[in-house]
């Protein structure tokens, strides 16, 4: 057996097992892909309004940090609850 034969056998076996694995995994995935999708974006959100677009130089540019600087919220994060560990109540019952 020549080196050429050995290389071909190794190659062939590798590709063959790779393809067989891919076929088997695809079949399993197809049979079990129920329940994968979540609610679509359009069901929950109004259109995303983009207020600013900018092309930045690179990932390490200082301007990138400026760009994503946090905006102070106008409203508190938790709706009227003084204690975030408190159990959620119906809004009609919050005093």
């Amino acid at each position: 057996m020549t080196a050429q034969d050995v290389l071909s056998i190794i190659m062939g076996a590798g590709v063959g097992i790779g393809i067989a694995f891919w076929i088997a995994a695809s079949i399993l995935e197809k049979r079990n892909n129920v329940g994968d999708s979540h609610g679509e974006t359009y069901l929950y959100s109004n259109d995303v309004m983009v207020t600013d677009k900018e092309k930045l130089q690179d990932a390490l540019h200082p301007k990138l940090k400026e760009y994503i600087q946090r905006v102070e919220p106008e409203a508190p994060k938790y709706p009227t609850a003084p204690n975030s560990k408190e159990q959620v109540k119906r809004t009609g019952q919050i005093k």
């Binding site: 020549t2 080196a3 050429q4 034969d5 290389l7 071909s8 056998i9 190659m11 062939g12 076996a13 590798g14 590709v15 063959g16 097992i17 790779g18 393809i19 067989a20 694995f21 076929i23 088997a24």
Partner: peptide
Amino acid sequence: ITIISGIVLGVVLTLLLRGIVSALGAPET
């Protein structure tokens, strides 16, 4: 099933590749 079908597919591909490789030439030829 994956291993056995992989080996069978491998044999077929080996014969195919061997033909191509010998036509194009490996270093020893």
